[in-house]
């Protein structure tokens, strides 16, 4: 019963924890067990921030990350913070604009325009949802319509359309 570890990382205020919570909820709805942990520091804005999911079929033995399958990096501050948790099987998705120097190693790195896409959609704060779309598509852990419903349900009414557009744009980055 192996588990899959996913990390959302960047700086505080980028919506990483929201994105992780949406994915966790969607996976749970599909019958998976998810353990979610996050950096817990005295400050709410700025500084290194992360949220981890350990996804399993019937509950992970150890609920914290030890070897990441998927790593998302949305800020240079987090560029190398997870290096010790990567191996040849890891897949790293970084924001092309904000992470000019992604980690290097024998893992695959995808540099994708999350922030730029969000800006084009009208609000760069939805970069987290663009990235969530890309991560969901890249991992294949969750069906597109399931994550779509989860984003819809988690969005305040006035952001619903924007968030769904952001999710779709992210999904389309993975071909």
């Amino acid at each position: 019963m192996s588990s899959i570890e996913i990390r959302f990382s960047g700086s505080g205020g980028q919506g990483l924890i929201t994105a992780a919570r949406i994915l966790a909820g969607a996976l749970t709805g599909e019958g998976r067990h998810v353990a979610r942990s996050q950096s817990y520091e005295p400050v709410s804005r700025g500084g290194l921030s992360r949220s981890d999911l350990v996804v399993s079929d019937d509950g992970a033995d150890f609920p914290l990350s030890t070897r990441l399958k998927y790593l998302l990096i949305l800020d240079a501050a987090a560029a190398n913070a997870s290096d010790g948790l990567l191996d040849g099987d890891s897949e790293v998705l970084v924001d092309a604009e904000l992470v000019p120097n992604p980690p290097t190693g024998d893992f695959r790195v995808y540099s994708l325009p999350f922030t730029d896409t969000a800006r084009r959609l009208g609000n760069k704060r939805v970069a987290n949802i663009v990235a969530l779309g890309a991560l969901a598509a890249q991992s294949g852990l969750i069906a597109p319509d399931v994550i779509r419903r989860a984003v819809e349900a988690a969005s305040p009414k006035r952001f619903q359309r924007l968030n769904l557009e952001a999710l779709e744009a992210g999904q389309q980055m993975i071909g």
């Binding site: 919570r21 966790a24 749970t28 998976r32 067990h33 998810v34 353990a35 979610r36 942990s37 996050q38 817990y40 509950g59 609920p63 914290l64």
Partner: peptide, 10 residues
């Protein structure tokens, strides 16, 4: 412990 306190699980 703090890990269990802040951990979210199914």
């Amino acid at each position: 412990d703090e890990v269990i306190g802040h951990l979210v699980e199914t």
